Amino acid sequence: KKRTSIEVSVKGVLETHFLKCPKPAAQEISSLADSLQLEKEVVRVWFCNRRQKEKR
């Protein structure tokens, strides 16, 4: 599977969401993915990776 490069503008939206809610529910991930025209899996993994980054 190819890596998905995420646009800077999209990263901004994801970051804003992350600050409000670092662990979104599946439904939130779905609606976020739809509005950003990304796959749900890509958004889910982004949040996973972002949470791990917080720990470091």
Rank of each mutant, 00 (worst) to 15 (best):
K1M: 12
K1L: 15
K1A: 08
K1T: 10
K1D: 10
K2E: 05
K2V: 11
K2P: 05
K2R: 09
K2L: 11
K2D: 08
K2C: 02
R3W: 03
R3I: 13
R3Q: 08
R3C: 14
R3Y: 13
R3L: 15
T4C: 09
T4F: 09
T4I: 13
T4Q: 11
T4L: 12
T4M: 13
S5W: 10
S5L: 12
S5D: 15
S5M: 15
S5I: 11
S5R: 12
I6W: 09
I6G: 10
I6R: 08
E7F: 06
E7S: 15
E7Q: 12
V8Y: 14
V8N: 15
V8K: 15
V8P: 15
V8Q: 15
S9G: 14
S9W: 11
S9Q: 14
S9Y: 10
V10M: 13
V10A: 15
V10Q: 10
V10D: 14
V10S: 05
V10P: 13
K11I: 13
K11W: 08
G12S: 15
G12H: 14
V13S: 12
V13K: 11
V13D: 05
L14K: 04
L14Y: 00
L14A: 00
L14H: 00
E15I: 07
E15H: 01
E15S: 01
E15W: 00
E15V: 03
T16H: 14
T16N: 09
T16G: 13
T16D: 14
T16K: 15
T16A: 14
T16L: 08
H17K: 06
H17M: 12
H17A: 13
H17R: 01
H17L: 07
F18I: 01
F18H: 09
F18M: 01
F18A: 01
F18L: 00
F18N: 01
L19V: 07
L19D: 07
L19Q: 12
L19N: 08
L19A: 10
K20N: 06
K20M: 02
K20H: 03
K20D: 04
K20Y: 02
C21H: 05
C21F: 04
C21Q: 15
C21M: 03
C21S: 11
C21Y: 01
C21K: 03
P22F: 03
P22I: 04
P22G: 01
P22T: 02
K23L: 10
K23Y: 15
K23T: 14
K23S: 14
K23R: 13
A25G: 15
A25I: 08
A25D: 15
A26V: 09
A26E: 15
A26W: 12
A26Q: 07
A26C: 10
Q27W: 08
Q27F: 06
E28Q: 07
E28A: 04
E28P: 08
E28G: 01
E28R: 03
E28F: 03
I29M: 06
S30R: 10
S30Y: 06
S30N: 10
S30I: 10
S30P: 04
S30L: 05
S30F: 08
S31D: 15
S31N: 14
S31H: 14
S31Q: 12
S31V: 12
S31L: 11
S31A: 12
S31E: 11
L32A: 09
L32Q: 00
L32K: 00
L32T: 00
L32C: 04
A33V: 00
A33C: 03
A33Y: 00
A33T: 03
D34M: 06
D34H: 13
D34K: 13
D34W: 02
D34P: 01
S35N: 06
L36E: 02
L36T: 02
L36G: 03
Q37R: 10
Q37V: 00
Q37S: 11
Q37I: 11
Q37G: 14
Q37H: 13
L38M: 10
L38K: 05
L38C: 04
L38F: 02
L38Q: 01
L38W: 01
E39I: 06
E39G: 04
E39R: 05
E39N: 11
E39A: 06
E39Q: 05
E39M: 06
E39H: 05
E39C: 07
K40I: 04
K40M: 09
K40C: 10
K40F: 14
K40Y: 12
E41V: 02
E41F: 01
E41S: 07
E41T: 06
E41Q: 02
E41G: 03
V42W: 08
V42E: 14
V42L: 11
V42R: 04
V42C: 10
V42I: 06
V42S: 07
V43G: 04
V43L: 07
V43A: 03
R44E: 14
R44Q: 11
R44D: 12
R44K: 08
V45P: 07
V45W: 08
V45S: 13
W46Y: 03
F47H: 05
F47M: 01
F47Y: 05
F47L: 01
F47A: 04
F47D: 05
C48R: 13
C48F: 14
C48I: 14
C48D: 12
C48K: 15
N49G: 03
N49H: 06
N49Y: 03
R50G: 02
R50C: 02
R50M: 03
R50Q: 01
R50V: 04
R50P: 01
R50A: 05
R51P: 01
R51V: 07
R51N: 04
R51C: 06
R51M: 09
R51K: 00
Q52S: 09
Q52F: 00
Q52M: 13
Q52P: 03
Q52W: 04
K53A: 11
K53Y: 04
K53F: 12
E54Y: 06
E54G: 02
E54I: 04
E54N: 02
K55G: 07
K55D: 09
K55L: 13
K55I: 04
K55M: 09
K55Q: 12
R56W: 07
